[in-house]
Design a protein around this nucleic acid. Structure first.
Lengths: 348, 348
DNA sequence: CATGTGGAGAAAAACGTTTAACTGAGCGCG
DNA sequence: CGCGCTCAGTTAAACGTTTTTCTCCACATG
């Protein structure tokens, strides 16, 4: 009798109709009360500790399930110092390179029971610093990070948490990225195969290592067979400086334009089209990244595809390893790239 | 000697060099110790409670700043039941409609000190449910949500937390979205202004309310002046069913194709181009959404722009209001849309 | 002087976990 | 028998806050 009255308030949480949950989630205490055992035992049972009998363990598991018990992550975080949340710090989601990455990272992380906390710094170092501080405050366990600046700021707030960089290596940090050198080489082979022996370069910024690699891969692959007619440096946002526009119009004998990434290639494409230069009839173009836009411009862009899914997945795996205590040396994981042939290149 | 050894571990946290932080962040205890006051007083001072003298308050604030103290959010969460984190649940980041939304939401949220936890359900109801469970487990304070299914699943895990929907109204939930009806009307006026009196419709799915509104806005704006030559329903992913392809080729007198969104419009555009129908010379096309792709296809797409930034910002504001206890009735916030005139429409 | 009154701060409890330390019971063994 | 050991479980401390309750003291008022 009395026990019924007493148990009332507790019971009403999860018992009615099974899946019904009023507002508060069931706590470990509720489970303990229902089984008639101490909270410690419940915790031990739930965490697979050896010091709990199999009968009790079964009962606990059962009760937890019945009550729809979920551990209170904030409480766990307090005790263990782990939140099972990770930060994903990106420079700009509206750059079509990143959404698929974000999607992959989130999905892979969720499979591992990790929550992804997003920071979009809008390409601003201050925003990035703010975001990192916020992440640190929430105690995320680790960070997947595509840093905006060429250098990791000095007193950076990783707070001793593991970091995996994406796409942009920085000394002392683990990184996963594509084989940009190989990409450049693939493009060079491809150019040669289609008879292009004189090309113009719209290389990415000198400060971005991947841009440098792409360029060098291309330039050094067949140096005696491919001649660089001209080269202009362009930011990875694809905005063409006047010299680039001029070079595109003059061309100086180049039959192929090799762009540092798809954004650059697409802007070049548009500039050319606007000035009545036909692609690929008058000049061919190749890009790099295979962003979604490459498929919808016309002509569709021949480009080098990065294995975004593999990169995102691997970054999460790498981070998770480190979360679990593996103190692996900060190495780079490099993925092969593939050439995607479309219609922006004509054979000569 | 011994006292040095003893005090080592504690002091080394925040005292050396002031801003130096070894690995643990400074705690409220450190601040209290430095000022020589109790932790309660520090907490009170930091939270602006009235029962602390102005001299002490100043000293506390100063010390907190010196130590780079940040409240431990997990600990706060335990006590207050608030995490200052929100969930952002989206169906598919690779759909170009969402990245800007996500960016806006994150930035606005960060300004309010809220951390954004991302879920990308990849258009799967199960993924969505998983994500919501994960969010609930982490105790996010509220959720901004663009639901994938036509209906909010029954035993859905919002756990009594406030929810603000985006773009897709569901009974009983607050929502912020664009005035799709108005968008349809704008398009009708625009069509008429350019002499299109016979049009084909590639409407969005009947099950999506916004699609319905867009269509109805268009159809009912000038019913006696615009004739609907044909109508085919297409999913918002833009994949054209055979009837749609057939209709595009035949056209049956339609001089303008009105698509349910940009994805549909762009696919139609490509289909037409592949079949040697020129746009806009042979037929005009308009879309809806003004996704980034609309700017890079050729011809660039005339479309209706949704104020994505306003929508994202407002959603966060609305949610924050609710977090702060305002129990406002679940209303819809509707934003005006604007017509963006580009080159996919020709006057007749 | 005795008695409130209010202000400023301290002490302690609480949030939901995990974990270290402890307690008995049962058992084998010298 | 009594010693130690293992098993299965309990108690209690701890994590970093916030909040409630408590204490102390100065001061005003009768």
């Amino acid at each position: 009798m009395f026990s019924q009255v007493y148990s009332g308030p507790t019971r009403s949480k999860g018992d009615r109709l099974g899946a019904d949950r009023e507002r508060q989630m069931a706590t470990i205490k509720d489970v303990a009360a229902r089984v008639g055992v101490s909270v410690a035992t419940v915790s031990n049972a739930l965490n697979g500790k050896p010091n709990v009998g199999s009968a009790v363990r079964r009962k606990v598991l059962r009760a937890a399930k019945d009550l729809g018990y979920r551990p209170h992550r904030a409480a766990q975080a307090m005790r263990k110092g782990r939140t099972r949340a990770i930060g994903l710090v990106l420079p700009d989601l509206t750059n079509p390179f990143f959404p698929q990455l974000a999607q992959t990272v989130e999905n892979k992380a969720r499979k591992l029971g990790l929550l992804v906390c997003l920071i979009d710094s809008q390409d601003s170092p201050e925003g990035e610093a703010d975001g990192l501080t916020l992440l640190a405050q929430h105690g995320v366990d680790g960070i997947i990070w595509c840093p905006v600046g060429p250098r990791i700021p000095r007193p950076i707030h990783t707070f001793g948490r593991p970091v995996v960089l994406i796409d942009r290596p920085r000394p002392g940090f683990a990184v996963v990225h594509s084989n940009n050198l190989m990409g450049g080489q693939l493009l060079a082979q491809y150019a040669l195969r289609h008879g292009h022996t004189r090309v113009g370069l719209l290389s990415g910024p000198r400060s971005v290592e991947s841009a440098q690699q792409r360029r060098n891969g291309f330039v050094t692959a067949h140096p005696q067979q491919i001649e660089i007619a001209w080269e202009v440096r362009v930011g990875f946002d694809g905005i063409l400086p006047p010299e680039a526009c001029a070079a595109l119009l003059e061309r100086r004998g180049a039959t192929l334009v090799v762009a540092g990434n798809d954004l650059i290639a697409i802007n070049a494409l548009r500039w050319l089209t606007q000035h009545d230069v036909r692609v690929p009839e008058d000049v061919s173009i190749v890009g790099f990244d295979d962003i979604s836009w490459a498929r919808i411009v016309s002509p569709r862009l021949t480009t080098v595809a990065q294995p975004l899914v593999a990169i995102g997945t691997r970054a999460v795996e790498l981070l998770e390893e480190r979360l679990c205590g593996a103190v692996i040396a900060s190495r780079a994981t490099v993925f092969d790239v593939t050439l995607v042939e479309r219609e922006s290149v004509k054979s000569i």
